[in-house]
């Protein structure tokens, strides 16, 4: 597989199809890291294994790394990353023509303890979409997709409000406000996040339980109808806040409320920017 990835990257860099290639490499410790290649000679630095967890589409909107106007960029995507990319395209953050997509078949990523990531268990897109990617590398994996039961979400929903507040209070008390969850998220691309504004200041920057509570509401709400459950936020969180459960709550709510799943169609508009005249009304006083 890695041979094919290197070959594809080499070809693209060589013939000028792309001027930059985003892939996975290794650091001196043997850990997988994102790498940004400019020259075809560098493609040996590319690696592929079950620790390539990062969602590289995050870097497509990183102005410190990439200026898409300067020419096309190649990027490796897994099935899950591809969903984020579709949202980025639908939100006009990335032009499809500005990128070359190398889809790689994935059979589940593993965490530092060699355990398969929880998101991979219910993943429905191990095989990247051939109609969307420029190239797909790897043999199509046949697997029975487990129905996503949202059991994590339902567990929380089963609690009464006070218990829920206590549960999240426990987690948010730990939150350092390092913003790793926001910064690693491919969809948190705002040039200036409202959390950084101080006039008006929506949430004070200090990490108190209460402030963190509002920070997490804002983060989750801004991803409502957009989050594709790539799970990067939860992976990046140093203090183990189950951010996916929050995101998945909203994914479920969007699915139930608007029959919409983000990341399927690069043309689709977010459900909060649309409406139906017969939307649910049961919550109106």
């Amino acid at each position: 597989m890695i041979g094919k990835i290197r070959e594809a990257a080499k070809r693209m860099l060589d013939d000028g199809t792309v001027r930059l290639f985003l892939g996975y490499g290794k650091n001196g410790l043997g850990d997988t890291v994102p790498v940004f290649l400019k020259h075809k000679e560098d493609v040996e630095a590319l690696y592929w294994d079950e620790t390539c967890r990062y969602n590289l589409t995050r870097y497509l909107t990183d102005r410190d790394v990439i200026c898409l106007e300067e020419g096309p960029v190649g990027v490796i995507v897994k099935g899950c990353d591809q969903k984020s990319l579709k949202v980025l395209i639908s939100e006009k953050q990335v032009e499809r023509d500005e990128i070359r997509i190398v889809g790689v078949v994935c059979s589940g990523m593993k965490d530092d303890n060699e355990e398969i990531l929880s998101k991979c268990g219910t993943c429905d897109s191990w095989n990247p979409d051939e109609t969307f990617c420029d190239i797909v590398i790897g043999q199509t994996v046949e697997r029975k997709i487990e129905e996503d039961e949202y059991s994590d979400v339902e567990e929380v929903e089963a609690l009464d409000p006070a218990q829920r507040e206590k549960l999240w209070g426990k987690y948010f008390d730990r939150c350092l406000r390092c913003y790793a969850c926001r910064n690693v998220c491919p969809l948190c691309y705002c040039k200036e996040c409202i959390l950084e504004q101080n006039d008006p200041e929506w949430v004070p920057p200090s990490a108190s339980k209460e402030n963190n509570f509002y920070f997490h509401i804002i983060r989750a709400y801004h991803l409502t109808g957009r989050c594709t459950d790539c799970g990067e936020c939860e992976r990046a969180c140093p203090v183990g806040i189950p951010l996916r459960t929050i995101n998945r709550k909203m994914i479920k709510a969007v699915k139930d409320g608007f029959d919409f799943v983000a990341g399927k169609d690069p043309e689709a508009r977010s459900p909060l920017t649309r409406f139906r005249r017969d939307d649910r009304e049961d919550f109106i006083t």
């Binding site: 829920r164 507040e165 206590k166 509401i217 709400y221 409502t224 709550k249 909203m250 709510a253 919550f283």
Partner: peptide, 13 residues
């Protein structure tokens, strides 16, 4: 507001 109310509920408001 539908989504916001849902989220508030989830967080225990």
């Amino acid at each position: 507001m539908m989504m916001l109310k849902d989220l508030f509920c989830f967080f225990g408001i």
